[in-house]
């Protein structure tokens, strides 16, 4: 049986307006690293709160480690680790005191599971007498992860652990997750950074409370509808304005120093037509090539169809 199962879960916070979650279903296998990928307000935190028994869903059911989130909430609370989106440790306690407090709270000791957190804890150990409120973003994340792991949970829920953390710390954090996965812990992690999706085994793309697709990152990319092209020219911003006026364009948007675009009907419209049109507009150094889409391209394609 899968470790985390969500079936047709819906949730509204307010009576009017769109619900936070609409008929969300997915499951996570034991020992899997599963990613919830979507922007703020997509409903990621709501999913976490339902799975950690903090919120009741309006409709649908969910189980974690075989326990029902409503009936067996007490059992779930002793076998999951949870790191909320906001840094949620005691700012006026030191690193050591926080860790010790949470260990005891979960009915264990720091020593009992030290092996699991050793790699992470050693990075912040030199500052163990420092209060948590005085730590840098990356160090706070590491401490929070240690506290969430201290009771060796079966399932680890990480709600946007890398938000607001710089690129270097983000990379380190994902390396830590890979090591934890190797220890057999099931991990559900959410992120608004699309480039982190490829680091998960399977992902769910989520937007405005609805799941757009669930699959391995590779399969999601494979399922990209039609062909995607990269367009380059000397002046990229003007290029974007011009290209958008071309009749056969389905999607066209900036992606780093290039534009990514797809045509409405791959048979009827093609790169050569666009190139000659752009040159007639006075664009210089225009080049186009077919490329493999990344997760962000897939997300944009999915949400654009949606709209």
């Amino acid at each position: 049986m899968d470790t985390v199962i969500l079936q047709h879960v819906s949730k509204s916070y307010v009576k009017e307006g769109p619900p936070a979650l609409q008929d969300v279903s997915f499951s996570v296998k034991k020992g899997e690293l599963f990613g919830l990928i979507g922007p703020d307000g997509a409903g990621k935190s709501t999913i976490f709160r339902i799975l950690t028994t903090l919120l009741l869903s309006d409709k649908g059911s969910a189980t974690v480690a075989g326990y029902d989130v409503v009936k067996n909430y007490h059992e779930i609370r002793s076998c999951v680790g949870y790191m909320p989106g906001k840094f949620s440790l005691y700012q006026d306690l030191t690193i050591e005191e926080n860790l010790h407090f949470f260990a005891t709270l979960f009915g264990t000791t720091v020593e009992a599971n030290y092996a699991l957190i050793k790699d992470i804890y050693e990075q912040i150990a030199p500052f163990k007498k420092r209060r948590a409120g005085k730590l840098s973003g990356g160090m706070k994340q590491k401490l929070a992860l240690c506290c969430a792991l201290i009771h060796r949970p079966e399932v680890l829920f990480l709600d946007e652990p890398t938000t607001g953390v710089d690129a270097v710390s983000r990379k380190e954090f994902w390396e830590m997750l890979q090591r934890l996965k190797a220890e057999g812990i099931t991990i559900v992690v959410s992120t608004p950074y699309m480039d982190e999706a490829s680091l998960c085994e399977r992902i769910a793309l989520i937007q405005t409370g609805q799941i757009l697709s669930i699959n391995t990152p590779a399969n999601i990319i494979k399922a990209y509808p039609g062909k995607l092209y990269a367009l380059m020219a000397t002046k990229v911003h003007l290029l974007l304005k011009d290209t958008r006026q071309y009749a056969g364009i389905n999607l066209c948007y900036a992606a780093g120093d290039k534009l990514h675009l797809s045509f409405k009907d791959d048979g009827k419209h093609h790169p050569a037509g666009l190139l000659s049109w752009l040159e007639s507009k006075g664009q210089q150094g225009v080049r186009i090539e077919e490329i493999t889409p990344d997760i962000e391209d897939c997300f944009i394609a999915k949400t654009s169809i949606h709209e």
Partner: peptide
């Protein structure tokens, strides 16, 4: 407010 209540509730305490 600090969000620590979430963690306390998710603990077996």
């Amino acid at each position: 407010e600090m969000g620590t209540m979430e963690i306390l509730l998710v603990s077996p305490f």
